[in-house]
Design a protein around this nucleic acid. Structure first.
Length: 798
RNA sequence: GCCCAAGUGGCGGAAUAGGUAGACGCACAGGACUUAAAAUCCUGCGAGUGUAAUAACUCGUGCCGGUUCAAGUCCGGCCUUGGGCACCA
């Protein structure tokens, strides 16, 4: 009898003692870098969802090693962030200690599953040796004018006295306590990510990301090509610029709207409208993002009393302010074409503003809604009769000639708000001096350590907890030496994860974040696995970070990630997301204990399409246990012979090819079904040879490494992790064809035995002579016969 | 509202280039072995018509149409579910 816990321990110790999975930088072997998103070590321990993706990547890593690659398969911890801070506040321990405990648990759990990580490269984003370089890189952003301070509204929970991310403030209430969230203005560090919008778009061509991953990035960047048009303000020596994607509808612009925060508002508001405008602006300030963007909200706004001149026809059109125009997108001002934009239509109806149709339409009535489908231009002077594309080009020509507009590209992507008012993050290494302003810390003094104190509860006024620790805050100005204060905000969680994959290439380097030589050797991440929820933001931040480092000459490639694969979630058996409150959580520890790591690993890959969500089923898991047990039992059939059984050659060679191919195309479930079919074929034999058996063990090893090593050792072979992946012989794979399907009018009516000596004509004759086929042909004429070689004959009759 | 993905047996899911739909596994049912249970092995398993049993037939991959000798697969139009983004001009 095999005790899976003993066997697993034995082989985990073996790999550990032999450094079996050590990646050696500079080795002459072909490098291959497999990365799986490093986890946030939460108090809940490892999730069965983690196990699924780690097993998947582990299977590839193990196969690639056997195929002679120098595999880098690292693991570490993304351990800064709010949950650890909250946990620490509640339990009165330092987050550092809470994180240490959690990491211990995660690592222990990972080790019981036998993942072939190179633990020599392990680090946590919270290690001073690591965040030193995160801080150092921030200073590079600053020194290259890529970091700046700006005043930005943030979500503030008056009860928790803390700043919330948009996710934690969903629906306008604090996720933790349910209190109404309010907006607060805060001065924050920003990174000029929007400067990289076009490069981030173009860079996708140098990656092998899945199409839907690329789409996620493209949508997030949100490029739109349009025009900027300058409107003069009647009676003022002022003008403003609007952004539009439909400059061809300028003849239909009957009013303009400025965002309430627009700089021009106070200048152009007339005396009679001043009170109303001020009141409206104040009302907007009180609203948070959620309220402002709420769906189906009725449009509101006020007239400034000023008029703009439509440059295409010199007509005076009123200027309004409204919060349906966002200050942060485009120019913060729009021209409104109510006939063809639903938002403008709604607004114009409410305030009785003229609606001028400029695109012909089949729709009958403009008294109810805007025409949103494109027709040819009408009421548009020199554009009349033109289609959209021609009209846009002609209008651009007009605007440029008259110096009142030009083509313009806009992006939805904004600059990256980089400050967090929290304790548990990388301190931002900046110092504020009354005399010299913001000054970067001296690089030699990094890392700027988080202080070890007992209090890190949030302050009452939204400052980071660090602000209370005066001994830490007070310092001297690096420039003038006078007294100065440190920045008390910390970096976002996204910071440490934006470059960790570079550090894995050279994790112990004390004078660089990673050496150019090491990065040139590993070249890039060949295969990056993570959740769908990270394919937009994390991936974009990481790419931005890398592109910046590339531009200042610190990394060898502009894109450092080649393929990105995203996994589906493991759901509870009730098809719901696993959660404590639903009581549907499966703990991998329990499964390993009862069924073994190999069974859990096999099941997690067999459960379904890897890229899709899939519910947990303990019954199905038991099926995988039966499979492993069957593999063990097959040992009783082994005879001492060193070549493949003749009658198994075909299926063996087919299986090698299929498993190898499936593992490389993320089709883990069919790789396992192939192995089940192979095991069943073995089981049908009176006996199998040692070689037959070892082959099955080798193919199964990447998925179930412990038991396969054990059985392989019993055969007297050297460990599989030190062996080569089996080769297949294409000439042995040729499929044996037994029969050919006969169809009449596309329906199967019989089969004839396959005979390679017979010509198509002879096969046709055989087909027509089948009794059941005759039934359907009699009294009808054969129009044609289609022969698909080696597969089927279709007789078409009428 | 926009974008993306997915709808196949009782269940999870297979089906390289349009060519025998339902691989593999689970559950279930019947049988063998056993004092018994577990484990294991054998048989069946989309729905229906039909037969003593075979055979044979009809329908069947969310819905409606189309292309084709042939459609789960391609095209057009919907419906449902899940996810992401959302007043982005």
């Amino acid at each position: 009898m095999y005790n899976h816990l003993e066997i697993e321990k034995k082989w985990q110790n073996y790999w550990n003692e032999h450094n079996s999975f050590e990646a050696i930088t500079g080795s002459s072997k072909d490098p291959y870098y497999i990365l799986v998103e490093f986890p946030y070590p939460s108090g809940a321990g490892l999730h069965v969802g983690h196990v699924r993706s780690y097993t998947a990547q582990d299977a590839i890593a193990r196969m690639m090693r056997m195929k002679g690659k120098n595999v880098l398969f690292p693991m570490g911890w993304d351990a800064f962030g709010a949950p650890a801070e909250q946990y620490a506040i509640k339990n009165h321990i330092h987050p550092k200690d809470a994180v240490k405990e959690n990491i211990k648990t995660f690592k222990r759990q990972m080790q019981t599953l036998g993942f072939s990580f190179d633990w020599n490269r392990e680090f946590s984003t919270t290690d001073p040796e690591y965040y030193k370089w995160t801080q150092w890189q921030f200073l590079q952003f600053y020194k290259h004018n890529m970091a700046y301070k700006a005043t930005v509204p943030v979500n503030w929970c008056p009860n928790c006295k803390t700043v919330l991310s948009n996710e934690d403030a969903a629906g306008g209430v604090c996720e933790r306590c349910g209190t109404q969230v309010v907006q607060k203005e805060k001065s924050q560090w920003m990174l000029r990510m929007s400067d990289y919008a076009e490069d981030l778009l173009k860079g996708l061509d140098d990656t092998n990301f899945a199409e839907k991953v690329k789409l996620g990035q493209i949508n997030w960047i949100g490029k739109s090509i349009g025009a900027e048009i300058t409107f003069k303000v009647d009676g003022f020596n002022e003008s403003f610029v609007v952004f539009t994607t439909r400059c061809d509808t300028l003849f239909g612009a009957t009013y303009c709207v400025l965002a309430p925060e627009h700089k021009l508002v106070d200048k152009i508001t007339t005396r009679e409208h001043k009170d109303e405008v001020v009141k409206y602006k104040e009302a907007c300030k009180l609203k948070n993002d959620m309220e402002r963007t709420e769906l189906n909200k009725e449009k509101t706004g006020v007239f400034t009393g000023a008029y703009a001149i439509n440059p295409v026809n010199n007509k005076k059109i009123p200027i309004y302010i409204s919060d349906y125009v966002l200050a942060s997108y485009g120019t913060g001002a729009i021209m409104a074409v109510p006939a063809h934009d639903e938002r403008d239509y709604e607004f114009a109806k409410k305030y009785n503003i003229p609606i001028v149709q400029v695109l012909a339409s089949d729709e009958c009535d403009i008294s109810n809604k805007a025409y949103t489908k494109d027709g040819l231009h009408i009421n548009s002077d020199f554009l009349n009769g033109l289609n959209k594309e021609d009209a846009i080009n002609k209008m651009l020509e007009f605007l440029e000639k008259n110096n009142c507009g030009k083509q313009q590209v806009n992006y939805k992507m904004r600059d990256w708000i980089f400050s967090r008012q929290r304790f548990w993050g990388e301190p931002i290494p900046m110092i504020y001096c009354e005399k010299c302003g913001w000054q970067p810390m001296n690089e030699e003094e990094l890392p700027l350590l988080l202080p070890v104190v007992a209090e890190y509860e949030p302050t009452d006024n939204g400052e980071s907890p660090l602000a209370k620790i005066t001994s830490w805050v007070n310092t001297t100005c690096p420039k003038c030496g006078g007294s100065a204060k440190r920045e008390t905000d910390t970096m976002p969680n996204w910071a440490g994860s934006s470059w960790y994959f570079l550090r894995f290439m050279d994790p112990h380097n004390t004078h660089e974040f990673a050496s150019m030589d090491a990065m040139k050797y590993w070249k890039r991440v060949d295969w990056y696995n993570g959740g769908m929820e990270h394919t937009a933001r994390h991936l974009l931040y990481a790419r931005f970070w890398v592109q910046f480092l590339y531009n200042i000459g610190l990394v060898p490639n502009k894109e450092m990630i080649w393929t990105r694969v995203s996994h589906g979630m493991v759901l509870g058996s009730d098809n719901q997301k696993m959660s404590k409150s639903k009581g549907n959580v499966i703990n991998p520890d329990d499964i390993v204990k009862e069924y073994g790591a190999d069974t859990l690993r096999t099941y997690e890959l067999f459960m379904g399409d890897y890229q899709m969500d899939c519910p947990w089923s303990t019954d199905s898991l038991k099926g995988c246990k039966r499979f492993i047990d069957k593999v063990i039992r097959l040992k009783n059939k082994v005879v001492d012979k060193e070549e493949y059984s003749l009658c198994l050659e075909n299926i063996i060679n087919k299986s090698i090819k299929k498993v190898e191919n499936d593992l490389q195309t993320i089709s883990y479930n069919t790789a396992i079904s192939t192995l089940m079919i192979l095991a069943n074929a073995y089981d049908d034999q009176e006996y199998i040879t040692k070689r037959d058996y070892q082959l099955l063990l080798m193919l199964l090893n990447p998925i179930a490494p412990h038991i396969t090593e054990e059985l392989n050792e019993e055969l007297g072979y050297k460990p599989i992790c030190e062996s080569s992946w089996p080769a297949y012989d294409e000439s042995k794979i040729i499929e044996k064809i037994n029969e050919i399907v006969v169809q009449v009018n596309g329906k199967i009516r019989g089969k004839i035995p396959y005979d390679s000596n017979k010509s198509d004509e002879e096969l046709k004759v055989m087909a027509i002579e089948l009794e059941n086929v005759k039934k359907y042909i009699n009294g009808k004429s054969i129009i044609k016969t289609i022969v698909v070689p080696n597969k089927l004959i279709n007789i078409v009759v009428k």
